[in-house]
Structure formats: structure tokens, C-alpha cells
Design a binder for these strands. Structure first.
Length: 862
DNA sequence: GCAAGGTC
């Protein structure tokens, strides 16, 4: 029997489609990557009985990157990234082993049906799948077609079955347009980002961002926030005047009337109108009207609307809201949360979904009434052909979900119920009055039936006092007419919800990527989230955007994305050649890039105002080995040392504190050592600022401290302080932390393992001798007489931390003796490899090392 | 270390 491989874009879709096509009789198993499942069933295909294997990928299989050597920032001129630097496709998520998985499942299959999402990205993934799978599939005989594309616009029985009945072919042009987008985004984004980052980081010390990034989506996103900031800054309040009239409708009731002219900006004119009206005793009714109006029930919920409400009403950022929604989805509480669609599919079981909520403690009454009286037809929304709108899938309580998950679930459910409720109906009454020559109006709303606002009370029409019944020609006594002086007020910072709307309107990002872009501009320190989730640009964000405006405004305008997309669409429609469009667009941006580089002084002028040059930043910390003057420690990210005399900058490890290390110097370059320490585990090690940036030995890499230095005789080096191989990781060595006393510590120089030992010893030294059993370096430990825990009033002892019985009580490694990795029989120091470099030869596991004991041992360290 | 787009 022949086999048909079918591939969807994500595991959840593979399952739903397989269920539909197999009519529920299928067998499923997990794939080798643990993320994707394979659903098998039998049926007919091309007029013959076949076995179907339905599985999925997880989004893109491949991602685009530069060849490795072009990822070295110091060695590559960013301008090269526009054309010279070659790119390669890499697996998008190596952990998922997607290519291998597809090949295992695809081997020996005869046909393939591609069920990827029906958009350009999906078309592109089709070809990623084919690249992986075609080489291992059975070859077609006699030109028989073996590759098919299913096109569907919703995940419903009819749509899926129709798609299966009229299979087409994947569209190469659409896929190519995505290839072009990927390459453009990569080359343009990386070139600008690297150039800006290197240029400004080399000049300013207080930028407070380790990356000055640029991108066709994130930069316009930031642009929106700064645009609002500029409006606020340039806002000049204007004074205006308003007439306000009161009429008495009853003995002790009065109505406040709004002036039909609303406001005037000239005081004298306002005064003139006031003079003309204030002597009038009576207000005459000119007209009355009563109109029944409706406030529409909401459209079915899509991602972007959910994110807007989450931000504006629930105070949850888009990234957090998406994570919460995804959890609710994987736990079966809501439907798939990434969709653009606001229209329920024809066969959507609205009543069934509603019935699930009929006993919910919060909204049972509303739901039961809707079910009894009949639900309202949802409004016609937009069908993007991706997934149904976001709806609850089962009932859940506050106690069950808790916190933000509950609040989001509650909103989604109330929104769903609202979509099948009736519109809110109210009566709008208006009365217009004439006082002298001037017209005034007053209006009021009365709710006729609350409709959906019952389940969404925050949307309800506010209660207002009802208006008196009257008709044209009636008169009321004027209570008072007064003139109010007011001022126009500036707009406030952009809310996240407004930003999402702007991004959606200008086609910046997608439902899935909008939260990522917003998160990016926060993390890069371009904007901060203020109360009410308003986005306030930082100095850095403002300077960047103003700089682009000055040099080349197109770089920050929202049209930058849409202009490129227009070109890409030509590729997708087969109207333009992929190579030509790519080449042309790259050429345009390459010119822009060179112009930007040449004009960077324009942006720099703005930077100078807000930021301080490296030499003026930070505080003197340690001496430079070249000029022996103090270098300044710049704490702002990325933390580094700067020698203003030599004009050199030395990066330091991030996320920790840096101190001078006893004015000790590196024997290789005379730089003063600094001590890095991390808060959480109390780990610390010395490092030489020069060696950290310029590794002194061939077996060392950039970013290594003295605890990884292979200097044979320096007292701070791994060679002198290393004890033995790490108990957890493969390549690490346990190194004595010479600064850790009196709570002495030994820490791995690669992983997070830390062990505490010899508390209160006043000196611990690593001896040149090694343990005869395990080859670890012996430790020489001195205690004060009063505090010595050693037997028989001894104050000094030398032994192996792993094997010595005296040390067993004093080291948290006390169980280590019989199963320390040193027993594995690897070459030790005797073989001349240097202490701590001892490694187990590959493929020679030690039979004496029981696995469970190793994990028990590991527990002591972490 | 960089983009944006999928998705877990």
C-alpha cells in the first residue's frame, strides 16, 4: 500500500485536519522531537487505497543567517552585509531536529500533501518541507505527480474536505517573495544595527543599551511613540472661551446646556455673545428630537483586539497577554489565540459554546436567558482564512485559573457571549434652546435594553438624568449664563493599545509579531512603559528617531515596510523577477546605508546633547597595562573599561559587579586585575581586562577570566587554582575562589556549580601535589587554633577534597570520594596535560560510576 | 550581539 505524507504548519492543526479527514478513526504517536505528532489512518488517494500520515512542522523549518565568519562584528564592515556576505539557511530551531524528523517520517512515502497555512509564509514553509523530504521519498514513476498543495480557508469539515478533493500545487513565486523578505530584513537590519551600535557605543558611555538596533518594523514602531512625544513637546496651550447656560426646568431642577458654537478663541467675541445672552430671562425651545440608537455588539475576537483590550483594560502587556493566551490554549480553555479573523465560520457551534457557560457562577443568568430566548446572529466580520475567532472552549472558574490567566479568560468569554447578544438600545433625546440670538443644546440618553452591555458592563451607556418633556415654543427661565475660560491641553503619550492600532493600520508586523516589536523597543531602552500602559520614549529613542528624520526620514516612516512589501508582492504575483527585485531593493538600501554612514554626524550632534562621551563617563577603577593610567569603569550596559589615554575600550562580563582586585597585575600585560562577582550564587573570579578581550593563549577564547587561563605559573590562573573536573558539566573545572574566605568556595569555571567548604579556615591553598587516588589537586588548609574543626587540636591539614577522610566533614563534597569523575581514569596531571585539564577519553565510561549516585552528588553543589 | 517571520 502506498503512503501519503501530509504536513501542517503546527501540531494542533495536524490533529484537527487528521480528525476531519479520517472521520475520527486514527492512531497517533509522538514524533522523535517530542513536539510534533504523527496521525495515521487509511483511505483512498488517486483512486487507490493508501495509508495517510498526517504530521506538522512548528512554523518555519529554516532561518536565514550569514555564514559564520560574517558574524564577527570586529572583522566585517557592515557595508559588506548588503552584497558580499553570503547567507545560508540554518535550522530555525536546532532543538526540534525538524529536518531529521521530517526525513524519518517522509522516508518511503509516495506522495506528499502540503497543509501549511494559506499565506505567503506558509507557501515558503512548503518548500522548506519539500527540501527536507523529497530526497528521502520514493521516486515517482513515469512523471506521476507526487507533490500536492491543499488550500483551505478555515478548519471546518467542508473546507478541509473540499481542499482535499481539489489539490493544487505549491506556489513557488509566493515562496520566493518570502525568501526575498528574509534576505532584505537580515541584510538591512544587521548592517544598520551593527554600524549604529559600534559607532555610538564606541563614543558614549551612558547609552544604557547594549544594542542600538534598527529594523523595518521596530524602527517605525518607535517612530510612532516619538511622533507623539514631539506633538506633546511642541504643543502650545491656547486659551478659549465657552458659554455655559443653565435653565430651570422645575422648582429645584436645572439643566446644563452646551453652546452650539462650542468654543471661541477670542475673548472679546465671547464676551460679546455673553452680553447678548445674559440679559435674557427666558430660553425658548427651538426643536426637540428623540432617536432610538444602538450601540453595536462587538465583532468576534481576533488577536490584535484581544491585545488591545488586554493592554488598555487589563493592564497586561502584549507579550505577557500572548503568553497567557497560549497557556490557556494549550490547556484547552480557549481556541487558538493567533488569528486575524473576526467572523465565525458558518458551521461554528455558537449554541454549544454558549451552553458550556450556562452554569458559570458569574454569567449563568445571562447565558441561560440567551439560550432560552434565542441567541442573536453575530455581526459579519472579516474572514482572513486562518483560524476561527478566539472563543472559550470550556468553562473555567477564577479559582482554577487564577491571576492574569483568569482575567484574560473572563474577558474572552464575556466578549464571546457579547457577540451573540443583542445590541444595546437607547434613546437619545435632544432639546435645542434659543437664548437671545444664541443656540444651546442639551441631550440625554436612556437605555431601552442593555443587550450585550449586560455581560460587558464597562461598555454600558452611562445613566443620565432624563430630560423634561417639552415641545417647540415652550419657554423655561434662564438660571444663569456664564463665560468659562479654558485651555487646550496636549495629547498624552501613546498607549500601547493605540500603538497596536497604528501598527495594524500601517501593516507593521503581524498579529504574532506585533507584541515582539513592542517588546523590542522596551528592552532596547527606547521607550518605557508608564502608568496606564503609555509608552514614553527615552532620550535614546528620541535621539535615534530625530536623527533618522534629519538624515533620511524614510528610515523611520511607516511606509518603509509597505513600500518593500509592494515590491515583494510583485514577486508573489509572478510579475517581477525575484533576483531583480532583491538586487534592486538591496541597492536602494545600500545607498541609503552609505548616505547614513556619511551623515552620521547629524545624528551624533543630537547624541552629544543627551549623552556623555566615554572619557567623561564612569569612575576610575583599574590601571591600564599600556600607559599605567587609571581606566574608567562604565557601569551602564554594556559595562566596560575605557582608557581615555590609549582610547581603548575593554568589555567586561555583564550582569555582575566589578571591583578592583587588590591592585594585582596580570603577568602578561601588566593590566590591573578586576574581580567579577555575581549576586545570586556568590560566585566570583578575577580577570585581566586585556586578556578578557584579547585571549593570550591559543586554547583560550574571548571572554575568559583568570579561572580559565592556562598560564602555567600565574598565581591566579586555572593552572594554579584548578582542583579537578566539574561534577556536572563535561568541560568545566572546579577552581578555588581565592577571595571567598572565610566561607571558602570552589566553583566550576564553565557551569553554575558551586561548592562550599572549610568554613572559617583562615587560609586555603592549592598544593602542587595531587591525590594518589583521584589525581585531584590537594588542598592545604589552615585554621585558627580556636576555630579549628580538625581532630586532635591540629590547625593545618593537607588532603584531597574528594578522598581525604578528614576533609569529609568539612566539604560538601563528602560523598564524592567513591564516585568523583576523577575516578573515571582520564589522563591526569601526570600525563602532562596540566591540572584541571584532565578529561575522560571519549567513549570510555567508567563502570564504577553509578548514574543515580552522580545525580545525587550533583544535588550537593547546585 | 544584529532583522522579521513562523511556532512550543
Amino acid at each position: 500500500m502506498k503512503t501519503v505524507l501530509m504536513v501542517a504548519e503546527k501540531p494542533s492543526l495536524a490533529q484537527s485536519i487528521a480528525k476531519i479527514l479520517s472521520r475520527g478513526s486514527l492512531s497517533s504517536h509522538k514524533g522523535l522531537n517530542g513536539a510534533c505528532s504523527v496521525h495515521e489512518y487509511t483511505g483512498t488517494f488517486a483512486g487507490q487505497p493508501v495509508r495517510f500520515k498526517m504530521t506538522s512542522v512548528c512554523g518555519h523549518v529554516m532561518t536565514l543567517d550569514f555564514l559564520g565568519k560574517y558574524n564577527k562584528w570586529d572583522k566585517v564592515d557592515p557595508a559588506e552585509l548588503f552584497s558580499q556576505a553570503p547567507t545560508e539557511k540554518k535550522e530555525a530551531n536546532p532543538k526540534l531536529n525538524m529536518v531529521k524528523f521530517l526525513q524519518v517520517e517522509g522516508r518511503g512515502c509516495d506522495y506528499i500533501v502540503l497543509w501549511l497555512d494559506c499565506d505567503k509564509e506558509g507557501e515558503n514553509i512548503c518548500f522548506e518541507v519539500l527540501d527536507a523530504v523529497l530526497p528521502v521519498m520514493n521516486k515517482a514513476h513515469g512523471g506521476e505527480k507526487t507533490v500536492f498543495r491543499a488550500r483551505f480557508s478555515s478548519i471546518t469539515d467542508t473546507d478541509i474536505c473540499n481542499a482535499m478533493a481539489c489539490l493544487g500545487e505549491p506556489d513557488h513565486n509566493e515562496a520566493l517573495s518570502v525568501d526575498a523578505r528574509q534576505e532584505l530584513d537580515l541584510r538591512i537590519g544587521c548592517a544598520f544595527t551593527r554600524f549604529q551600535t559600534k559607532y555610538f557605543q564606541g563614543k558614549y558611555g551612558d547609552l544604557d543599551s547594549s544594542l542600538i538596533s534598527f529594523g523595518p518594523c521596530q524602527t517605525p514602531t518607535l517612530g510612532f511613540c516619538v511622533e507623539r512625544h514631539d506633538k506633546i513637546q511642541s504643543f502650545k496651550p491656547e486659551t478659549y472661551w465657552v458659554l455655559q447656560a443653565k435653565v430651570n426646568t422645575d422648582k429645584d431642577r436645572s439643566l446644563l446646556l452646551d453652546w452650539d458654537r462650542v468654543r471661541v478663541f477670542d475673548r472679546e467675541i465671547a464676551q460679546m455673545f455673553l452680553n447678548m445672552t445674559k440679559l435674557e430671562k427666558e430660553a425658548q425651545v427651538e426643536a426637540t428630537s428623540r432617536k432610538e440608537k444602538a450601540k453595536q455588539r462587538p465583532l468576534a475576537l481576533n488577536t490584535v483586539e484581544m491585545l488591545r483590550v488586554a493592554s488598555s483594560s487589563l493592564g497586561m502587556g502584549p507579550q505577557h497577554a500572548m503568553q497567557t493566551a497560549e497557556r490557556l490554549y494549550t490547556q484547552g480553555y480557549i481556541s487558538y489565540p493567533r488569528t486575524e479573523t473576526t467572523h465565525y465560520p458558518e458551521n461554528f457551534d455558537l449554541k454549544g459554546s454558549l451552553r458550556q457557560q450556562a452554569n458559570h457562577p458569574y454569567w449563568a443568568d445571562t447565558v441561560k436567558r440567551l439560550l432560552a430566548e434565542g441567541i442573536n446572529r453575530p455581526r459579519k466580520g472579516h474572514d482572513a482564512g486562518d483560524h476561527p475567532p478566539i472563543t472559550p472552549m470550556k468553562s473555567a472558574t477564577e479559582a482554577e485559573l487564577g491571576g492574569d490567566a483568569w482575567r484574560l479568560y473572563e474577558y474572552i468569554t464575556r466578549h464571546f457571549i457579547a457577540t451573540v447578544s443583542h445590541d444595546c438600545k437607547y434613546l437619545q433625546s435632544t432639546i435645542s434652546f434659543r437664548i437671545g440670538p444664541e443656540l444651546f443644546t442639551c441631550s440625554g440618553k436612556t437605555v431601552l435594553s442593555p443587550g450585550f452591555t449586560e455581560i460587558m458592563p464597562w461598555q454600558s451607556v452611562p445613566l443620565e438624568e432624563s430630560l423634561p418633556t417639552c415641545q417647540r415654543g415652550d419657554t423655561f427661565p434662564v438660571g444663569e449664563v456664564k463665560m468659562l475660560e479654558k485651555q487646550t491641553s496636549p495629547p498624552d503619550y501613546l498607549t500601547e493599545a493605540e500603538l497596536i492600532t497604528l501598527m495594524e493600520k500601517h501593516g507593521i508586523g503581524t498579529d504574532a509579531s506585533i507584541p515582539v516589536h513592542i517588546n523590542n523597543i522596551c528592552q532596547r531602552n527606547y521607550v518605557t512603559v508608564e502608568s496606564g500602559r503609555r509608552l514614553k520614549p527615552t532620550n535614546l529613542g528620541i535621539v535615534l528617531v530625530h536623527g533618522y528624520y534629519k538624515i533620511d526620514a524614510e528610515l523611520v516612516l511607516p511606509t518603509i515596510r509597505s513600500a518593500v512589501e509592494k515590491q515583494l508582492n510583485l514577486i508573489a504575483q509572478g510579475k517581477a523577477d525575484y533576483r531583480q527585485v532583491l538586487g534592486h531593493t538591496l541597492d536602494v538600501f545600500k545607498r541609503k546605508f552609505h548616505y547614513f554612514v556619511d551623515s552620521i554626524a547629524g545624528m551624533d550632534e543630537l547624541m552629544e546633547v543627551s549623552f556623555s562621551p566615554l572619557a567623561a563617563t564612569g569612575k576610575p577603577l583599574s590601571r591600564c597595562g599600556k600607559c599605567h593610567r587609571f581606566m574608567k569603569y562604565i557601569q551602564a550596559k554594556p559595562s566596560r573599561l575605557h582608557c581615555s589615554h590609549c582610547d581603548e575600550t575593554y568589555t567586561l562580563p555583564q550582569n555582575g559587579t566589578i571591583k578592583l582586585y587588590k591592585e594585582l597585575r596580570c603577568p602578561l600585560d601588566d593590566f590591573e586585575l578586576v574581580l567579577w562577582s555575581s549576586g545570586s550564587r556568590g560566585k566570583s573570579y578575577p580577570l585581566c581586562p586585556y586578556c578578557y578581550n584579547h585571549p593570550p593563549f591559543r586554547d583560550m577564547k574571548k571572554g575568559m577570566g583568570c579561572n580559565e587561563c592556562t598560564h602555567p605559573s600565574c598565581q591566579h590562573s586555572l593552572s594554579m587554582l584548578g582542583i579537578g573536573q566539574c561534577v556536572e558539566c563535561e568541560s568545566g573545572v572546579l577552581v578555588l575562589d581565592p577571595t571567598s574566605g572565610p566561607k571558602w568556595r570552589v566553583a566550576c569555571n564553565k557551569c553554575s556549580v558551586v561548592a562550599h567548604c572549610f568554613e572559617n579556615a583562615h587560609r586555603v591553598r592549592v598544593s602542587a601535589d595531587t591525590c594518589s587516588v583521584c589525581e585531584a589537586a590537594l588542598l592545604d588548609v589552615d585554621f585558627n587554633k580556636a576555630k579549628s574543626p580538625l581532630p586532635g587540636d591540629e590547625t593545618q591539614h593537607m588532603g584531597c577534597v574528594f578522598c581525604d577522610p578528614v576533609f569529609q566533614e568539612l566539604v560538601e563534597l563528602k560523598h564524592a570520594a567513591s564516585c568523583h569523575p576523577m575516578h573515571r581514569g582520564g589522563p591526569g596531571r601526570r600525563q602532562g596535560r596540566g591540572r584541571g585539564r584532565a578529561r575522560r577519553p571519549p567513549g570510555k565510561p567508567n563502570p564504577r560510576r553509578p548514574k543515580d549516585k552522580m545525580s545525587a552528588l550533583a544535588a550537593y553543589f547546585v
